[in-house]
Nucleic acid binder design. Structure first.
Lengths: 350, 350
DNA sequence: CTGAAAGCGCTAACAT
DNA sequence: ATGTTAGCGCTTTCAG
């Protein structure tokens, strides 16, 4: 394999257009101080030669790398990929993130990092040193890991925290968990439900608490109690089973359950079945995520959609623009919506 | 945002270890001609300072970029992501490709390219010029697009063609389509089926033909006719419906159908239902892909698994090693397996 | 408004 | 076995 050089470099363009390298550079970077005529001439050469700048060279000379790094939790991501249960978080991030990057001449790269590892810092340094990204997207549970956020803050690397609305460095951007949980609860209240159980996510994810808050708020407003109606899971199927079991084994069992992930809702569905309960006849179910599988279950699940693509897209935009404009102080909220399907319905007659 | 420079460079390491840049470079790249003692000293400095080479600088100096580019069909990929129907091709590529890249110090990057565009070449040049990848993975239908394969061949950029077994430049690597189709057919023959229909994929994918060949071969061997038992689809749901309809409307309708994608199988299931046929009682169904949804349908689908992760992983290895070792002449085959579930069973009594 | 010079971090080629 | 030199392609000074 021959030592590969750039086919067309800025030099070729400069020679072709009969100008200096800098002028070409200015045109590429849309800098001022180039006469329109000159600019047109250079652009013509660029087009004719099919010139595209090398991001390595751009990066080397101290400018941008045109790379955005999306950091995901290694363990969870790999487990999801291997399980093949239809979770499409990564796909949706790519859909939103990659395409927006592409529009702006950037590329998005995925990096897997262990949150719990004691050498997070080493992993991060490695990725940053090797790639020198212009921006970083953090996903839960990284978004609120002080080791990780601190790392980027110290180094002045722009980063977005998806699923976090804490104050602090970095752009906080959430999917409106509190209001989404309210939405789900209200949907059930509208159907006459009064005992609405909630299967929350793990503590490690701050959105878990926000969802609980939303649910409680809606219940309070309706003058209903939420005592003993909340259980925790870890988003996984088994934990959902356990939680659903606890809630449905109560004397006065809930007539509806809101679960913080599709897997946990699926688990609740299975538990209900095992208890001889009809869904939605005896028990209404509302899910969170709205991943592909919810349409293939029987009944299909009513679910709060998580607008991951839109969120990733917004994060990319804010990161790319963070050089020019100041980033928003307040958390950015990209709201989801409730998709009503067959798993929720009227409260069963007493 | 301050002009960001590399925190720790090769210079720092050299100074710290009291050696020349070149010696450090040799240690990094595991080149010969460094005494163990020297090597240890340098390595110690590297570790202490937490030095990681900048891939931009490495690339600039004419060495590798440590980047592997996975090129997917833009239209199909985006459609899949938006449809959220559980196709996890990209995830499986990442699972196999990214992790293997990571093991070897490489990164994998996804690039979407329009096969049908008249400026494919421009798109490719752009990606190559910007990123300078050390290797490229082509997925169907790019794998056999001469414009695309020619592009990389001309430029001496190592590339793998997934799903292609044509001769020619680049590493051909398939998932054993012919033998997989045989496997599926044999499974049905073993259950006594004699009229086994086949819904093939589009012509554009060479694997479509290979699967047909495998099915025909198995049928021939069993002394059975395959006349009029093959229809074409485009892997999508609607096309599957059409094809299944044609096959099942025949006088002497097939007792089993093999469909070349999960979506088409799902469509066949729907058509069968609409005709009042029980699956697998009246009609057995075997699918290709084994994507997440097949476990959530009723009945779950018997399917030929496509070992995408293993294939991507193998492709990455072959690409990375293509500098040192010669690439295999013969097509590499990563075989899939048949996962038997509820959609296939004994032939119904005549 | 445009150009010339210097340097980013690293490695290939050539000394020693 | 190690060090020195030159240069990759680009942008940032700084001069004109």
């Amino acid at each position: 394999m021959a030592r590969r050089r750039q086919a067309v470099t800025i030099k070729h363009v400069a020679a072709d257009a009969g100008v200096s390298l800098q002028t070409v550079s200015r045109v590429i970077n849309e800098e001022p101080n180039v006469r329109p005529a000159m600019k047109a001439k250079v652009q013509a050469s660029i087009d004719r030669l099919g010139y595209v700048p090398s991001i390595a060279a751009q990066r080397m000379s101290g400018s941008r790398s045109y790379l955005i790094l999306a950091i995901n939790d290694r363990e969870r991501t790999i487990a999801d990929w291997k399980a093949r249960e239809g979770r499409d978080w990564v796909d949706q991030m790519l859909l939103g993130g990659m395409l927006t990057c592409a529009e702006r001449g950037y590329r998005m790269l995925i990096e897997l990092v262990d949150t719990h590892s004691d050498h997070v810092e080493r992993e991060l340094s490695g990725a940053i040193a090797a790639l020198q990204p212009d921006g970083v997207i953090l996903t839960p549970p990284h978004s609120e890991n002080p080791l990780i956020t601190g790392f980027f803050a110290e180094r002045n690397i722009p980063f977005a925290r998806i699923g976090s609305r804490q104050d602090g460095p970095g752009i906080a951007i959430t999917m409106g968990d509190r209001s989404n949980a309210r939405l789900a609860t209200q949907h059930l209240l509208d159907h006459g439900h009064e005992r609405i159980g909630f299967v929350a996510g793990p503590d490690e994810f701050s959105l878990s608490k926000r969802r609980i808050d939303g649910w409680k708020a809606a219940m309070d407003e309706a003058g209903l109690s939420h005592d003993g109606l909340c259980e925790r899971g870890d988003f996984g199927f088994d934990s959902g089973k356990l939680a659903a079991h606890k809630l449905l084994a109560r004397d006065h069992r809930p007539t509806a359950l809101i679960c913080s992930s599709d897997q946990m809702t699926l688990a609740a569905l299975e538990v209900a079945r095992a208890m001889g309960l009809d869904v939605p006849g005896d028990l209404s179910l509302v899910s969170f995520d709205n991943s592909p599988i919810v349409r293939f279950t029987d009944p299909p699940l009513t679910a709060v959609d998580q607008p991951i693509a839109a969120t990733a897209s917004r994060a990319v935009e804010l990161l790319i623009d963070s050089g020019k404009e100041p980033s928003p102080e307040e958390p950015v909220i990209v709201t989801g919506e409730l998709v009503v399907r067959g798993s929720s319905g009227p409260v069963p007659p007493a």
